[in-house]
Amino acid sequence: MTLERSLNWCPNNVEAGNLTQIYEFHLMMLSEDPEVQHFLFGLFLSMYLVTVLGNLLIILAISCDSHLHTPMYFFLANLSLADICFISTTVPKMIVNIQTHSRIISYVGCLTQMSLLIIFGNMDDMLLTVMAYDRFVAICHPLHYPIVMNPRLCRFLVWISFLISILGCQIHNLIVLQFTNFKDVEISNFYCDPTQVINLTCSDRFSNDIPKYFLAIIYGFFPISGILLSYYKIISSIMKIPSGGKYKAFSTCGSHLSVVCLFYGTTTGVYLGSAVSHSPRNSALVSVMYTLVTPFLNPFIYSLRNRDIKGALFKLQRKII
């Protein structure tokens, strides 16, 4: 059974009276080989389940251990929750598409996926910035840390991060909904990549680039600047500490710094890969790193590099057993 592509073609391609409403987009499959598809299905399903379980364990461990009721672990629990939501916006749909051999996503479904992807992607971005600020206060102003990073401020920072993420989503949706004509329904990725959906519109390239650059500045440049400034201050303070305490001071930042490098490294790879590579499949493979591998590795980074988390997980295991 074949599905008719209903889409608004560019006005210069057809007469205005022949335009129809768009109902669906077609996503790209990572491989057309049935054997490879079965392998990818098992691999992605396993990674998704491990990611969800790992982040849930971190949230549960932090909730159950009173020693972890501190600002740093409060932000970590929220980051784990954002990672669960982030990976759940793309991977389940990809797994279902592989299993059903379908590439179709409805227009409403595509907008919904884009909205959730932007919200939780920006939430990760904002929380990593907040966590950098938390480490800055803890290391540079340790005596004032309990007063500055009080529970009320911590809750406010999480809520403001969520509201900023919602705002970014609404700005993007207002931009996308202005476009009624599309050149094609083929999205060169396994999910509704906001950048690629905008590129499918019939507007000129300059109009397409404005929202991308605007959102990149708001949700890329400013958070990265905040993180870099925080770590500049942190490193400056650590250099003044006697040699015996330098490693101990910086070790509290190790997990966060690893996640920051992983998150921004894969994000940069996605956009540079899509700009440089002329192969849509290569760009999609890079996107797998951003949407799946990064949330998958985060629980391992925090559980393996953090003795407090490992201790809380062992306590949780003894309680369950």
Rank of each mutant, 00 (worst) to 15 (best):
F314Q: 14
M123Q: 08
I309C: 00
S303F: 03
L40H: 06
T180A: 06
R135F: 11
Y290Q: 13
S161P: 02
S243V: 13
K246P: 00
F296C: 02
Q170R: 08
L153S: 02
N13T: 15
Y133E: 14
S115W: 01
S283Y: 09
L292V: 12
M1S: 09
Q99H: 08
L153H: 05
V276F: 12
S277H: 09
C192G: 15
C253W: 00
K310N: 10
R135L: 10
A132N: 06
L163Q: 09
Y290L: 14
S236A: 09
P34M: 05
Y23F: 11
R5S: 12
R152T: 12
A249W: 03
L81F: 00
I235F: 11
N208L: 00
R155A: 12
T267Y: 10
N97P: 05
V137A: 05
C154E: 12
S165C: 10
L174D: 09
Y290V: 11
M126K: 12
F75P: 02
M72K: 14
L285K: 05
M28H: 05
S230M: 07
I166R: 02
V148M: 03
K248Y: 12
T90I: 07
I198H: 01
L45C: 09
A61D: 01
F250K: 02
L157G: 09
T112P: 04
D209W: 00
Y133F: 13
T252L: 05
D308L: 12
F74D: 07
L27G: 05
M123D: 11
L27E: 04
P11A: 13
Y302H: 09
F182S: 03
C10V: 01
C64D: 08
M94L: 13
L30A: 08
S88E: 13
